[in-house]
């Protein structure tokens, strides 16, 4: 009678230990996977910030050169300067913004406003052949084009990283562990209306 009891107790403890270890291992694996994926999102985010910073840094020079030739385009230039100023306080805000969907939306809005202001400026300058002939402007234009392209690339990679992360934390049973440790889904970049990925028509 006593021996049976003892064996039962030991078996019970052993079972509990086994269950405990397997739970620990499962949780640990999921947790570490989330950390890895979140780190990749943060890394992609810092690249996004870099390329936006790069664009913001280009603008003073660009405005300076354009001013020299296209004095009459004050409004267009002013719009760029203002949009740049709004963005100024927004770049390098760190990955914290990824946990605040509203701040993220504000960031995207400010950047997209700058994109469209720049686009208008680049349309306007078509009217100034002397400006287009200026080597400084040609170089700045190449840099701006390259930066816009980099922005598209880094935004796409960021969205891919977010997708991997969001998918991982929302799957069952990972979602239980994710919510226990407070892993939140992260926001995506939405396609810019008109500016992004519109395939150029070729004839």
């Amino acid at each position: 009678m006593k021996r049976g009891c003892l064996i039962g107790l030991i078996a019970g403890i052993a079972l509990l230990v086994v269950i405990g270890i397997s739970i620990f291992v499962t949780v640990k694996n999921y947790y570490n996977q989330f950390v890895t994926l979140e780190e990749q999102v943060n890394q992609a985010w810092s690249q996004v910030e870099n390329v936006y910073q790069r664009r913001a840094d280009l603008i003073p020079n660009l405005v300076e050169v354009v001013k020299g030739y296209a004095r009459h385009e004050r409004e267009t230039l002013q719009a760029v300067v203002e949009a740049r100023a709004k963005v100024g306080g927004q770049v390098n805000i760190g990955p914290g913004v990824l946990n605040d969907p509203q701040a993220f939306a504000r960031f995207q809005q400010a950047q997209d406003a700058l994109s469209s202001a720049l686009q208008r400026l680049m349309v306007v300058v078509e009217r100034y052949p002397e400006l287009k002939a200026d080597q400084r402007f040609a170089d700045l234009q190449a840099q701006l084009e390259g930066t816009e392209n980099r922005i598209a690339v880094e935004r796409r990679r960021f969205n891919q990283a977010v997708q991997a992360y969001n998918t991982a934390i929302r799957k069952f049973p990972a979602n239980i562990i994710a919510s226990f440790f407070g892993f939140q889904p992260k926001p995506y970049f939405k396609a810019q209306p008109g500016a992004e990925q519109a395939p150029k028509v070729q004839f």
Partner: peptide, 8 residues
């Protein structure tokens, strides 16, 4: 990897 640098 590249990040969209270069020219067209």
């Amino acid at each position: 990897l590249s990040g969209g640098g270069g020219a067209s």
